[in-house]
């Protein structure tokens, strides 16, 4: 009897029964949208090779489709509980604020695909097909939120490596006449011509790395439900 009373585990059990508190309102309604808006802004940003001028690339229709499928994946895996964000018992203001956060998640996804998909030519179709294949398979797989988060991080990291490390390095960053470029980098020039890869300044890769990192941070901060309990 005395031994049982001395056991400290009882305190631990009580601690476990306490309700878990989600992210604060400031994180859900300010930090998270700010991060996702930054991703939306930077996802389509490229820097011109000659003068580092901004080039804002509008997303292809494919990016919207992929983003919509990814949103469905988030819901199916339980990473985003729709009734935890939008519910009839919530006030109109709360529903509107939650819808705004989900809208930024969607726009960020669109722009992330815009960042990771090559702009045109054969690479666009190959990488696009790989995305489609993966997303289609994932739609019918059983996921929990943690596994899905890891899977998405791996998918996006791989796509980033293909787009901004492999394909970007196949194009020379030098500007100049066609003849000059062929004489300086014959192999890279041939790949650029064959694969129809646009030329961007080296800074673009750094911006897109930052964009991907921000998006993954946003996903990490995204609660399953906007309700704090």
């Amino acid at each position: 009897m005395d031994e049982a009373l001395e056991k400290p585990e009882i305190v631990t059990d009580i601690a476990l029964v306490e309700p878990r508190v989600g992210p604060s309102a400031s994180v859900i309604y300010l930090v998270l949208p700010a991060i996702l808006l930054a991703v939306t802004l930077l996802g389509g940003l490229r820097l011109g090779v000659a003068d580092n001028a901004f080039i804002f690339l509008k997303p292809a229709l494919t990016c919207l489709v992929f983003a919509a499928v990814t949103m469905v994946l988030f819901v199916r895996s339980g990473m985003v509980a729709v009734d935890g964000w939008l519910a009839s018992e919530n006030s109109g203001l709360r529903n509107a604020a939650n819808a705004a956060v989900l809208l930024t998640l969607f726009t960020a996804l669109v722009q992330l695909y815009n960042s990771l998909l090559p702009e045109q030519g054969l690479p666009f179709w190959i990488v696009g097909f790989c995305f489609f294949w993966t997303l289609w398979n994932n739609l019918f797989a059983e996921f929990d939120p943690k596994r899905l988060l890891r899977s998405m991080a791996a998918l996006f990291a791989m796509a980033f490596a293909v787009r901004w490390l492999f394909l970007a390095n196949l194009t020379p960053e030098t500007s100049g006449s066609w003849i000059e470029r062929i004489l300086q980098n014959p192999t890279q020039e041939a790949f650029t011509w064959l694969l129809d890869i646009p030329r961007y300044s080296a800074g673009t890769g750094y911006i897109q790395f930052f964009t991907l990192a921000l998006f993954l941070l946003g996903l990490y901060l995204l609660p399953r439900s906007a309700s704090r309990d």
């Binding site: 309102a25 400031s26 859900i28 309604y29 300010l30 949208p33 700010a34 808006l37 939306t40 802004l41 389509g44 011109g48 003068d51 001028a53 901004f54 080039i55 804002f56 509008k58 203001l93 709360r94 509107a96 604020a97 705004a100 956060v101 809208l103 930024t104 726009t107």
Partner: peptide, 26 residues
């Protein structure tokens, strides 16, 4: 926070749409 969040999202998305529409270079 909710009111501020809606305002941030509305202003942010409008600004981003403006940038992608007007295509400034600098």
């Amino acid at each position: 926070f909710q009111i501020l969040g809606i305002a941030v999202v509305a202003v942010g998305l409008t600004f981003i749409a403006f940038l992608y529409w007007s295509q400034p270079r600098t």
